[in-house]
Design a binder for these strands. Structure first.
Lengths: 114, 114
DNA sequence: AGTGAGTGCAACCCATCGGTTGCATTTTTT
DNA sequence: AAAAAATGCAACCGATGGGTTGCACTCACT
């Protein structure tokens, strides 16, 4: 009898790759760059970073599959933009977990005080 | 001239392993179990899951190194408990990123309207 | 004291990840 | 038309990750 907001196994399977995409320092710094610096190309992004352009491309593909980033071709360049919706999803998942904990604490407290 | 709330490289290096720990369906379901079911032992947790006890142990160690979980010995058993503080950290990191995006949007809007 | 439950430790396997190098392809630009 | 910029594709490499099996160890319980 789980609440509709609970973290069902189906949701976990959606959440896992999302958090996994966030679980890399290089990718996080890419997200920061795309947030602060607006839409950018791969070469521009790899200019900031220590690793090669192809490595950055791979990271962007991971972020893209996680839905955190989107790309559009513009002539010979490919422009990458941040996708805020998916970040909101991640936030929701954390909130659900946190809420689950609070509920458990409350019922434990009720049990003790009973 | 970054704001004190900004996502500095140092913060990214702290955030990455945290999100990485959350980036696995098995680990997420462990966290859910520890949230809802209260403190539990490894054997109890592995009873719910499809994978072996040793696999669960490894996952718990990963969660522990990320600070998401804590263990205390109690006789011959080891009790694992959820650690809500670290989840709050993760939430903060997401909020910072989200805020970074909002600020960029606002200044872009100001630029266009100028 | 001895049996069994709960863990810990270590080796091993295969898949994936992060990264590289090299070269082909497509658009600009002059 | 030719050179240069931006990207795509593919092979390869070492390290890490998730998982397993097997066995040793510690502690509770009768």
């Amino acid at each position: 009898m789980s609440r509709p907001e609970a973290l069902s196994p189906a949701r976990l399977k959606d959440a896992a790759p999302l958090f996994a995409a966030l679980g890399d320092a290089t990718r996080l710094s890419l997200l920061v760059s795309l947030c602060a610096g607006g839409p950018l190309t791969v070469t521009r992004l790899s200019g900031q970073s220590a690793v090669s352009r192809q490595a950055i491309t791979k990271h962007l593909e991971v972020l893209s599959e996680a839905g955190l980033v989107k790309s559009t071709r513009h002539g010979r360049e490919r422009i990458w933009t941040f996708e805020p919706k998916r970040l909101e999803d991640a936030h929701q998942y954390l909130a659900r977990l946190s809420r689950e904990w609070d509920v458990a604490l409350a019922s434990l407290k009720a049990f003790v005080e009973d």
